[in-house]
């Protein structure tokens, strides 16, 4: 464990909690992509199956359970409890175009040909693109509420912090996992445009809106 990893984990946790609280407090999931949250639920489910097979640490298990429970609860809020407020007409990204290529790539490039390993690899690839339905929704409506921008920023910066963690681990432990690194770089690059808008607009007190 190092500081980058810890900050990354907590910014990821922060993103999940911000989204959950936003929906809960406003009783509305307007502007939120249910499809992205659904993809994250698939990601966590496939990746954290090792909860049953492999104990790492109490911290590790507790965080995995919090990520899983809070993501499924958010999904329930979007598709059940507050479904009347769900903006489905703007949430039209075809997620099969993300799921199928991730599955094929996981079968082609993985560390080991076993069920758990392939599901883990699939989750890494899918996570790197899971934000696309949400970014697509923001580009379609041309704007995002400030709280949604904070959610997206926390979600994006976490993988960037993980990249710093991987660099740190390479120099201190001589450890590198190329699958995580490449997928993490792809994931972070997808946010670049958003990061730019976030820093130049949202942090200066303006609402995130795209030029028409």
């Amino acid at each position: 464990m190092n500081i980058f990893r810890l900050l990354g984990d907590f910014s990821h946790l922060g993103a999940i909690i911000i989204l959950l609280l936003k929906i809960w407090k406003t009783r509305s999931c307007a502007g939120v992509s249910g499809k992205s949250v659904l993809l994250y639920a698939i990601v966590f489910t496939c990746r954290y199956l090792d909860l049953f097979t492999h104990f790492v640490s109490l911290y590790n298990s507790v965080m995995k359970i919090i990520y899983l429970v809070s993501t499924y609860f958010t999904l329930f809020l979007i598709y059940r409890k507050f479904k009347a407020t769900y903006d489905r007409n703007h949430d039209t990204f075809r997620i099969e175009f993300l799921i199928l290529p991730s599955a094929v790539l996981a079968l082609l490039w993985n560390h080991e040909y076993s069920v758990l390993e392939i599901l883990w690899t699939f989750s890494i690839y899918l996570e790197s693109v899971a934000v696309l339905p949400q970014l697509f929704m923001v580009s379609k409506t041309g704007e995002a509420e400030t709280i949604t921008s904070h959610y997206l920023f926390a979600l994006g910066i976490y993988r960037f912090l993980y990249i710093l963690n991987w660099i740190y681990r390479y120099y201190t432990e001589n450890f590198i996992d190329w699958i995580s690194v490449v997928a993490g770089v792809v994931q972070t690059v997808l946010y670049c445009d958003f990061f730019y808008l976030y820093i130049t607009k949202v942090l200066k007190g303006k609402k995130l809106s795209l030029p028409a």
Binding site: V56, N165, I176, S180
Partner: peptide
């Protein structure tokens, strides 16, 4: 370089 993934990351 060690590449064996111990999966302690989230």
């Amino acid at each position: 370089v060690i590449t064996k993934n111990e999966k302690d990351e989230l």
